[in-house]
Write a protein that binds this DNA or RNA. Sequence first.
DNA 1: GTTAATAATGAAAAGGAATTCATTTTTCTT
DNA 2: AAGAAAAATGAATTCCTTTTCATTATTAAC
Lengths: 222, 222
Amino acid sequence: MEILIAEDDEQIANSLKKNLAEEGHHIMVVHDGQKALRSTDSILFDVIILDWRMPKVTGVEVCKHLRNSGNKVPVILLTALSQVANKVEALQLGADDYITKPFSFDELKARIEAVVRRYQTNEKELIVANLKLDLLSRKVSTPFGEISLTGKEYDLLKYFILHKGSIIGKEELTKSVWELNYSSGTNVIEVTIKNLREKLEEKLGKKLIKSVYGEGYIFIPE
Amino acid sequence: MEILIAEDDEQIANSLKKNLAEEGHHIMVVHDGQKALRSTDSILFDVIILDWRMPKVTGVEVCKHLRNSGNKVPVILLTALSQVANKVEALQLGADDYITKPFSFDELKARIEAVVRRYQTNEKELIVANLKLDLLSRKVSTPFGEISLTGKEYDLLKYFILHKGSIIGKEELTKSVWELNYSSGTNVIEVTIKNLREKLEEKLGKKLIKSVYGEGYIFIPE
DNA sequence: GTTAATAATGAAAAGGAATTCATTTTTCTT
DNA sequence: AAGAAAAATGAATTCCTTTTCATTATTAAC
């Protein structure tokens, strides 16, 4: 798992990094909220541990920014015992959990597993390579930002992702994506695929949908 | 909301019942784990508060039983400060959260709202009265057939259902449903609500969305 | 290299969703 | 009861999505 730790106390940060790395996770540590936000712009983490009090941008502000940007990565806040009232605020602002210092590593580990399990078993996201489809909001995000797709483009992309690695013929697409709304004798499929390709390539810089002459298309994410 | 409290300390139980009832919730209190399990057999709760230590069946055992039966109702465990190691166990056994005594009512209230919100938004369907929203396909079905909604109408209905029983102001709707696409100085909210009302009433034969003059709207499914 | 079949492209048209507008109705205060 | 504020309504307009169209490009067969 990719874990981001934002903690300005170096002793705590190092201890967490060491213990979590021993569990086989990939850990990135930053020491202020601004760097935390910058990291989330280009890396998809599985969970983020945020200290409450940090220089420049507080943990709560980081969390708020993530949620406002539509980023649902699990967030655990580390808090001091005195800040009870703020815990209410934190949960309301979108944190998945918080832990009160001092805490045991086992406790943190269990909480990480719990929030990640809830996140992963949502089955409400399709993640492939650098693409993440949120199946409820129908938003498509990448490390380079969100891709704005129309309804048809979204349905088409979802179909491709669910059948990645397989050649999909045009007739299959008419039945599965267009359903009853398809008129034969037009090239609406080619046009829609072209538009989807443009949007994906603009963001990801590579071609994910390949043509197979006379047979159809195949989605290869890498 | 229907809330089950399983707590053998009568003082704590009564205090929680009183405070939560004042928030408008329906509270059932039992004093041991066996009665808690029996209650869950016949009542669908929105959330369950379980004390860790209880006669006959402990809170952890109740939780374990629920999860083994496939019951995903949110569970919050109340624990004493000394029982850190068992907290790990509790989360791993499927508790959604726990609170360490002593705690403030505001903290409990916030955690209840957080786990219930996650529970409600985790499922792929929202079911309320005669309406069922399929959150993936965005189809709305009733016993009398499917209701064809536009994207905006669907988002609006979903928001109402997620906040049923609460008055929702127009400004809140602009921020939550329209987000950045809202132009002040128009009556797009009123028009969209009117269109949604028409479709719901045509199918269900009753008015679910009520106006509160000068404040906003409230969704009451029954 | 040529030809036919298939795919891609730029632009326009069609259709539907969302918003705006003008007016009417309802609600609350006085 | 009257007037102001808020909400609802019918219809039109605007905007966006989807499809259609004409043309060009690419691919495969010969």
